[in-house]
Structures are given as structure tokens and as C-alpha cells.
Design a protein around this nucleic acid. Structure first.
Length: 492
RNA sequence: GGCGACAUAGCCAAGUGGCAAGGCAGCGGUCUGCAAAACCGCUAUCCCCGGUUCGAAUCCGGGUGUCGCCUCCA
């Protein structure tokens, strides 16, 4: 069984059949940089990063395009407020986006087009639509005529009539139909403007995605991604424009929409002002914790952001990581002491020894985890199941590590490699080694204290030994006395 | 008003017909000088009412509640 994906176009899970065998072309709606990137954005890009990593791991070539809407009403408004240029505002927040995405381990798209650098491409599409009679000009504006596109509403499953009945906004009287939308907006004085056949102006909101997707991916690419808030009108309009322009359908084969991230009962959004900037959250939590948090729930379920939930993710993530640390330590010990150590060098398939059978169990656990992981991810990118598979494997590793019997480093290594491999697809375990400038001195001091405490323990001077442990704990250094000696780590 | 989602343990969260994953918190046990970590065990009438079925958290109908979209939005 292969990959199945929920497609908003059909409202069902479908077998994934790529346009080009062995290749997956993705278009994602990017951000409008007029404020800091928040956790809601992170949800989208972390999810798609995982999708890309997974598909590549499964042997696909993956190509991803993501736009940057660097000209828009909000950007202009912010620039006026500050007395700077829209370009400066866009650049500043685009930088923030790049920075936090890099830190979250989100790979950059293969093509990252800015709207302002593709005005001519956009104008060409609008011209085509006007020529074919799908769009009309009024004053300096150009509108798309939805009545000329009979399939309008096929994605969001609503008809223009229905929407008119419930419309809550007053309609621009110059439009032929209430649902018509702007392809080109005449510029007002002081606004950024580009020359066009209809006079100076700038692109409407929806047309950029059509123009950019068609330019870099062509009609009929595989995945179109975005938040479910974009189903209507944004993606509905993209489909109308694109299919009207090319005369081909589908514009995109699979529309994949992720659910919103809420705060309390309301959607996290820049316009509501109730957002948590990723850069702020990163001050408190490692990237892996944030990725764990997102991976632990399905992308199509609305999630509620809270400090408690991140804290729970942090502990769970810590658990996985300390398992990895302990296993690596055991492997290193085995390497140092050879076959006489606690972990023997016997290969995992040495069935004669107990170490061999332990190794076999771990090898088996590793392949079971791999299977469960694939099964989960193949089922509409169920990262929660995939994560559970990593946890299952971690339990097996801990069990082996603490069972007291010998463990073959072959099996252990296989389990550790699998944890890292699968976790890596979810973006876990990517934190760099602690590498602060003063950490050399810090590490030395802690080591010294740990050694002294070890000597105190040997003399059964428990009170003093405990004082060192408690004192370090208060400073965020946690000591654990394991069978092979005391280990310490920073609490993060 | 129209369209569409969702409702699973104290909390978060998988699960689209066959004994209810995983995590956080809690309790009991093992291990430990004591801890920590880890492992084992315990904690669910799957929102309510009907229906279909040998069998339903899962399918159908009704109800209640929450959310999203219809306006900028990831």
C-alpha cells in the first residue's frame, strides 16, 4: 500500500499518483511579511518540511515552490505608520521568517519567488484572461468574471448564489457580479505601482499564486498546500484563474489544507493580535520541542496552542533524547572496553549469546518501528502515529539498556540509527552540540564537582554528595547515577 | 442566514466495522545509599438519543456543544 492523501477537491483520502513518476511538485502559499512569523505559520511550514523529507526518504524527487507576497495593503499600511517604505517592511519580516525557519530546521523551498520580482509574469496572465473574456477592466482595475467560469465553487463546494445570500460585505458597484475579484488594482497616490496595460497599479491577492505556480511548475502539479482558511476565496480563485487561463484542469492534483492553530478558542492570527511569535517561543524551547509539538497532532485537526502543551512536548522530547544519549553512551563504552564490557561487540545475528538475542530483539523492534512509521506517514501524513513508532522503539531501547543483561552493540546501533533516521524525518534530534563559548569552563567545573561527589559517595558521605547534586539541580544541571557512572546534562 | 469541520481518560492525541496507539500528569511496584532516569502495572459506559449490522468510537438519522469559512489571513 502506498501513500494516501486527503484531497480537499474530492473531500476524500485518495491514492497518491504523481504527475511525473518518481517526482513530486509542490506549491505552497507563502506568507505576507508584515509582522513576525508566528506559531500558526510554523505549523504549516514544519508540516510541509516533514512531508518533503518523508517523500524524499521514500525515493521521490521533490521540488517545492513557495511565494512571498511582498507587496500588499497591510505592508503598505505598516510602512506608512512607520514612515518607511513597503520594501523595507517586507524585507525585515521576510528576514525574520527565514531566520526562524532555518532554526526550526525547515528546508528552504527550491524556488522562493517574490511577487515584486514577477510583475511581468503576473501581467501576462491577466492579459491572457482579459483576451479570453474571463476578465474585464473598470477604470484602472481588472476583475475576474466568475460567471464565465462554470466550475467556480468546486473546491469550496459553494455556489456564487449561496454566497451572495449570506454576503456580509457591501459590493463594489463596478463589479459585474458580487463574487468577482480583483486581478489588478489601480494604485492610489503614494502606493507602490507598476506600469501595466491598464495603467499603474499592483496585482490582486490571488493572481500571484496562479502566475508563479504556472511559471515554475506548470499546470497539473501535485500538491498545493495552505491553511484551510484559504480554501475560500484564495484557492477557489486560483483555480478559476489558472484553469481559465490555461484551459487545462486540474490546476493542482491534490489540495492539501492544514487546520489552524488556535489560542484558546480563537484562531491565532496577525490581525487578531493574539499570536505567539516563533522567535519568542524559540527563546524558551528548542526547535525539536516545537517540532515534536506539531508532529504529535494530525495536520488536519485544529490545535490549541498553550504553554502547558509545549511543556508536555518538551518532557516527551527529553525522554526520547535521553534514551538516545544513554544508548550512545553504551555503544561508546562498548567500543572502549571491547567484548569484556557491558555491551559486547557481538554482531546482532549472533544467536548463540544472550547479547545476540538482545540485539535481535532490538533489530526487530527497529524494523517494526520503521514499518509503523511508514504506515502512519502513508496514511495522509499521520505524524502522530509516526511519532508513536519512535516512542515504541525508545521503550525497547530503554528496556534493553536497563535489563542488566548484555546488549550487542550491533542491535543497539541499529536501533539508535533508526530512531535518528525516523526522528530526522520529523525534524527531531537536530540540535547542535552544546557549543557556547564559555561551555568549556562550565563543563570542566561540572566534571570536577561530579568527580568530587563520586569520591564522597565512595566514602558514603551522602549528605555532602546530595548537597552537590541538589545545588547543581538548582542551577539546571541534572545528575543521574547510572550503572556505568554518573552522567549529567543541562535541563533545557 | 449559507457552507464545512470537529466532539475519544485529569490533560494532549491517534484510531473510517472486529478485544481503544502514543505522550503529559497521577498512583502502586522494581532498581537506587536516597534520588533521578528507566522498566512493569493501574486509571475510558469513545457528547446524547435512535437506527443499520453477528459486531459501531468508526456507517446512517436526529439533538446538543465547539470551531472555521462566507472580509485580510498560514
Amino acid at each position: 500500500m502506498g501513500l494516501r492523501v486527503y484531497n480537499t477537491l474530492t473531500r476524500t483520502k485518495q491514492d497518491f499518483v504523481p504527475r511525473t513518476p518518481g517526482r513530486v511538485d509542490i506549491y505552497q502559499c507563502g506568507i505576507t511579511p508584515y509582522d513576525y512569523t508566528h506559531m500558526g505559520h510554523a505549523r504549516q511550514y514544519v508540516f510541509w518540511d516533514t512531508v518533503r523529507r518523508y517523500l524524499r526518504w521514500r525515493g521521490f524527487e521533490v521540488f517545492c515552490v513557495q511565494n512571498v507576497t511582498d507587496v500588499d495593503d497591510k505592508i503598505i499600511a505598516k510602512a506608512n505608520e512607520r514612515g518607511t517604505s513597503p520594501a523595507e517592511v517586507a524585507a525585515e519580516y521576510h528576514e525574520d521568517f527565514l531566520d526562524v525557519m532555518d532554526r526550526l530546521g525547515v528546508e528552504r523551498p527550491d524556488v522562493f519567488p517574490k511577487v515584486t520580482e514577477h510583475i511581468q509574469d503576473i501581467i501576462r496572465v491577466i492579459e491572457g484572461l482579459v483576451e479570453k473574456g474571463y476578465a474585464y477592466q473598470v477604470d484602472g482595475d481588472v476583475f475576474f468574471d466568475v460567471t464565465r467560469f462554470p466550475d467556480y465553487g468546486k473546491l469550496s463546494r459553494r455556489s456564487p448564489d449561496e454566497m451572495m445570500a449570506g454576503a456580509r460585505v457591501e459590493v463594489d458597484p463596478r463589479k459585474r457580479n458580487a463574487m468577482d475579484f480583483a486581478l489588478w488594482k489601480a494604485s492610489k497616490p503614494g502606493e507602490p505601482a507598476w506600469d501595466s496595460p491598464w495603467g499603474p497599479g499592483r496585482p490582486g491577492w490571488h493572481i500571484e499564486c496562479s502566475a508563479l505556480a504556472l511559471k515554475y511548475l506548470g499546470s497539473g502539479f501535485d500538491f498545493h498546500g495552505g491553511g484551510d482558511e484559504l480554501i475560500f476565496p484564495h484557492h477557489e480563485n486560483e483555480i478559476a484563474q489558472s484553469e481559465a487561463y490555461t484551459g487545462q484542469e486540474p490546476f493542482a492534483r491534490y489540495f492539501v489544507h492544514h487546520a489552524m492553530l488556535n489560542v484558546g478558542d480563537a484562531k491565532m492570527s496577525k490581525s487578531l493580535g493574539n499570536f505567539f511569535a516563533v522567535r519568542d517561543v524559540l527563546r524558551q524551547y528548542e526547535p525539536g520541542v516545537i517540532r515534536y509539538y506539531f508532529a504529535s497532532r494530525h495536520y488536519r485537526s485544529p490545535a490549541s496552542y498553550s504553554a502547558d502543551e509545549l511543556e508536555a512536548a518538551r518532557r516527551a522530547y527529553e525522554r526520547l533524547r535521553s534514551t538516545l544519549d544513554a544508548a550512545r553512551r553504551r555503544i561508546a563504552d562498548a567500543g572502549r572496553t571491547g567484548a569484556s564490557g557491558r555491551a559486547s561487540q557481538a554482531p546482532a545475528d549472533d544467536e548463540a549469546s544472550s547479547a545476540g538475542s538482545r540485539g535481535d530483539e532490538l533489530s526487530k523492534a527497529a524494523s517494526e518501528a520503521r514499518e509503523k512509521f511508514i504506515q502512519g506517514m502513508d496514511d495522509d501524513f499521520n505524524t502522530a502515529v509516526a511519532l508513536a513508532a519512535v516512542h515504541d522503539l525508545a521503550r525497547s531501547v530503554n528496556d534493553a539498556l536497563h535489563s542488566g543483561s548484555e546488549v550487542s552493540s550491533g542491535g543497539l546501533r541499529r536501533a539508535v540509527d533508526t530512531m535518528e533516521e525516523l526522528g530526522g524525518i520529523l525534524g527531531l534530534f537536530r540540535e547542535k552540540e552544546e557549543g557556547a563559548a564559555d561551555s568549556g569552563l562550565m563543563d570542566g567545573l561540572v566534571e570536577l564537582l561530579v568527580q568530587v561527589r563520586g569520591e564522597l559517595r565512595a566514602k558514603k558521605e551522602w549528605a555532602l554528595a546530595d548537597r552537590i547534586r541538589d545545588g547543581l539541580r538548582e542551577m539546571g544541571i541534572v545528575l543521574e547515577d547510572t550503572a556505568s557512572g554518573t552522567v549529567w546534562k543541562r535541563e533545557k
